Deep mutational scan, measured.
Amino acid sequence: EHKIILYENPNFTGKKMEIIDDDVPSFHAHGYQEKVSSVRVQSGTWVGYQYPGYRGLQYLLEKGDYKDSSDFGAPHPQVQSVRR
């Protein structure tokens, strides 16, 4: 199983989107239009992308907690697509 939770604010606060065993080419299409400032990967390895359609900067997200976007190497809290 692959499970990831994306949070609007640092330290796992604010609006969140939970994804289980699915690739998401556009967070906006899924109704999530917030920034991504923290991430909790509960299982599996994911790649987050700066822009929709798996474009832009890529961020490797392995199991663990990323309490701020800088923890996974993002210069800005901008992640708009993700895949396993």
Rank of each mutant, 00 (worst) to 15 (best):
H2M: 08
H2K: 11
K3M: 04
K3I: 02
K3W: 00
K3R: 12
I4G: 02
I5W: 13
I5R: 00
I5T: 11
I5Q: 03
L6A: 05
Y7T: 02
Y7H: 02
Y7M: 00
Y7E: 03
Y7R: 01
Y7Q: 07
E8N: 08
E8H: 04
N9M: 07
N9E: 11
N9F: 07
N9P: 00
N9D: 06
N9G: 14
N9A: 09
P10T: 10
P10K: 11
P10H: 04
N11V: 06
F12Q: 07
F12L: 10
F12S: 07
F12K: 01
T13S: 02
K15A: 08
K15T: 14
K15R: 08
K15H: 12
K15V: 05
K16A: 10
K16Q: 14
K16W: 04
K16G: 11
M17D: 12
E18Y: 05
E18H: 04
E18I: 15
I19V: 15
I19P: 05
I20V: 10
I20A: 02
I20W: 02
I20K: 15
I20Y: 15
D21G: 04
D21L: 00
D21M: 01
D21N: 10
D21C: 00
D22E: 15
D22K: 11
D23T: 01
D23P: 00
D23A: 06
V24S: 06
V24D: 04
V24Y: 11
V24L: 12
P25E: 10
P25T: 02
P25F: 01
S26F: 13
S26N: 10
S26E: 14
S26G: 08
S26A: 12
F27V: 09
F27N: 02
F27Q: 01
F27M: 11
F27T: 09
F27Y: 06
F27I: 11
A29M: 13
A29Q: 12
A29F: 10
A29E: 13
A29D: 12
H30I: 12
G31T: 05
G31V: 00
G31Y: 03
Y32I: 15
Y32V: 13
Y32L: 14
Y32N: 12
Y32Q: 13
Q33V: 14
Q33H: 15
Q33C: 13
Q33L: 14
Q33W: 12
Q33D: 12
E34D: 08
E34L: 14
K35M: 05
K35Q: 10
K35Y: 02
K35D: 00
K35A: 13
K35T: 10
K35H: 10
V36L: 00
V36D: 00
V36K: 01
V36H: 02
S37A: 12
S37R: 14
S37P: 09
S37G: 14
S38Y: 00
S38V: 06
S38K: 00
S38C: 13
V39W: 14
V39Q: 02
V39K: 03
R40Q: 13
R40H: 05
R40S: 11
V41Y: 00
V41M: 00
V41R: 00
V41D: 03
V41I: 01
V41S: 03
V41A: 01
Q42W: 04
Q42I: 15
Q42M: 15
Q42R: 10
S43D: 02
S43W: 04
S43A: 14
G44K: 03
G44D: 00
G44R: 00
T45C: 10
T45R: 06
W46K: 01
W46T: 02
W46F: 04
W46E: 00
W46R: 00
W46C: 06
V47G: 00
V47C: 06
G48V: 15
G48L: 15
Y49W: 14
Y49F: 05
Y49H: 11
Q50K: 00
Q50C: 01
Q50N: 02
Q50L: 02
P52Y: 00
P52E: 12
P52R: 03
P52Q: 05
G53L: 15
Y54A: 03
Y54D: 08
Y54P: 01
R55E: 05
R55D: 06
R55V: 04
R55F: 03
L57E: 15
L57S: 12
L57D: 12
Q58G: 07
Q58F: 15
Y59G: 03
Y59I: 09
Y59V: 11
L60P: 06
L60N: 15
L60D: 12
L60S: 09
L60E: 15
L60F: 07
L61V: 03
E62G: 05
E62I: 10
E62N: 07
E62V: 11
K63W: 15
K63H: 06
K63M: 02
K63A: 09
G64S: 00
G64L: 00
D65K: 04
D65S: 08
D65M: 06
D65T: 04
Y66C: 01
Y66F: 05
Y66Q: 02
Y66V: 03
K67M: 14
K67S: 15
K67V: 11
K67I: 15
D68C: 09
D68Y: 09
D68W: 14
D68T: 11
D68V: 15
S69T: 13
S69E: 09
S69N: 10
S69H: 15
S70F: 12
S70D: 07
S70E: 12
S70N: 14
S70G: 10
D71S: 14
D71N: 14
D71V: 10
A74G: 13
A74H: 15
A74W: 07
H76S: 13
H76Y: 14
H76M: 15
H76A: 12
H76I: 09
H76K: 06
P77S: 11
P77E: 14
P77K: 10
P77A: 08
P77N: 09
Q78Y: 15
Q78P: 09
Q78N: 13
Q78E: 08
V79A: 01
V79W: 03
V79G: 05
V79H: 01
V79M: 04
R84S: 03
R84A: 02
R84V: 04
R84Q: 06
R84N: 00
